[in-house]
């Protein structure tokens, strides 16, 4: 605020938000779907942080998880398959004042959107990315995704999936400029909330892979992990996630992991059983592309219009420039 007094005056009207204030339309996810847990955690985060709905935007691609923006009473963009991240980057670039969240699935992010995913990590723009990883294409009724386990029979792999699954954590941790990588599971909501909260507070791209159940198409896939707390490895650290005494009683398999250690993070990420849960890597010093490229120029309507015109002119064919016989086709008129 330019005038210090505005700060306290803008808070005069602050009233505590209720979780319901962030609730959009009724979720259409299947009963028992892990997406519900993520939605509840995110709505809780919005309430606890007092985010104003008009300053918050959820961007998604296509898939079960990508229905997320519909269920948030904030701004949202339910976009193009695999393109949640570039859309979110555009939003962040144009409106750095907005809180940008991205909800993407294992198919959306790791398959069709893989190129955007890698570059988004490298761009490290300030946003919270949640990868809802249920290891299957659920919206289109069971086809393998890049993270499906080998041998999984599906509509596209009736004889079972041929390849070992892709590990989104090791991929992310291998990209230049990675700054925040965490893993959560939908069946430990307390940690899910803590991890998403840590991701939200990180300045840069925070990547949270959330392993979630699909009760419809992979009903028993994760049962061994859900039912045996020893098969979950909690990563604890004073700079990472701290486990409450109540939770520690149930989840006794814990290890102290320093999130500033990238090599160790890569090692932890490679281990899939027990499932590591917590903050794997955190480096707040990585520069953000949205900060580096912030334009000092004021976005006046005239400037925006001129920019749009010059872009559109590149594709406009001017009728008066129609070529005469034997001449080359007219080129786009320079702006």
């Amino acid at each position: 605020m330019t005038i210090p007094a505005t700060e306290w005056m803008s808070e005069i009207d602050d009233e505590p938000h209720l979780l319901e204030a962030y609730q959009g339309s009724l979720p259409r996810w299947c009963t028992g779907c892990g997406d519900n847990a993520i939605l509840a955690a995110v709505q809780r985060l919005c309430r606890d942080e007092g985010l104003t709905p008009e300053k918050t935007v959820f961007v998604s691609g296509i898939g079960c998880s990508s229905r997320f923006p519909h269920y948030m009473r904030t701004y949202g963009f339910h976009g193009i398959h695999g393109r949640a991240l570039p859309v979110a980057e555009g939003i962040k670039m144009a409106r750095p004042d907005l809180h940008v969240f991205v909800n993407t699935g294992d198919g959306d992010c790791c398959s069709i959107g893989a190129a955007h995913w890698i570059h988004a990590i490298r761009y490290n723009m300030n946003m919270t990315v949640m990868l809802h990883d249920n290891h299957i294409y659920g919206l289109t009724k069971k086809q393998v995704s890049p993270t499906s386990p080998r041998g999984l029979r599906s509509n596209t792999t009736p004889r079972g999936a041929y390849l070992e699954p892709l590990n989104p954590l090791t991929v992310t941790l291998g990209v230049t400029n990675v700054s925040f990588v965490a893993q959560a599971v939908d069946w430990i909501p307390e940690l899910l909330y803590d991890i998403i909260s840590a991701a939200f507070h990180h300045k840069g791209l925070s990547f949270v892979r959330i392993i979630q159940r699909c009760p419809e198409y992979l009903p028993n896939l994760l049962d061994p992990w859900v039912q045996d707390p020893m098969r979950t490895l909690l990563l604890t650290h004073e700079n990472g996630i701290q486990v409450s005494p109540g939770l520690a009683k149930v989840y006794k398999n814990q290890v102290r992991h320093d999130p500033s250690d990238l090599n160790k993070a890569r090692e932890v990420a490679s281990a899939e059983d027990p499932i590591p849960v917590g903050l794997l890597y955190w480096n707040p010093a990585v520069p953000c592309y949205d900060v580096i490229r912030q334009s000092p120029q004021l976005r006046t309507p005239d400037l925006i219009r001129a920019g749009l015109d010059s872009e559109l002119d590149k594709f406009t064919i001017w009728p008066q420039d129609e070529p005469k016989r034997g001449q080359a086709r007219p080129r786009a008129r320079p702006s």
Binding site: T31, G34, A37, L39, Q43, R44, W187, P189, G246, V250
Partner: peptide, 23 residues
């Protein structure tokens, strides 16, 4: 605190099971 908001119980009997302020 361990509830994952999956709607199973609330669909069985929404009067018996309800969500708290954290859903």
């Amino acid at each position: 605190p361990r509830c994952t908001t999956c709607n199973e119980c609330t669909q069985i009997n929404p009067k018996m099971f309800a969500y708290n302020e954290n859903k």
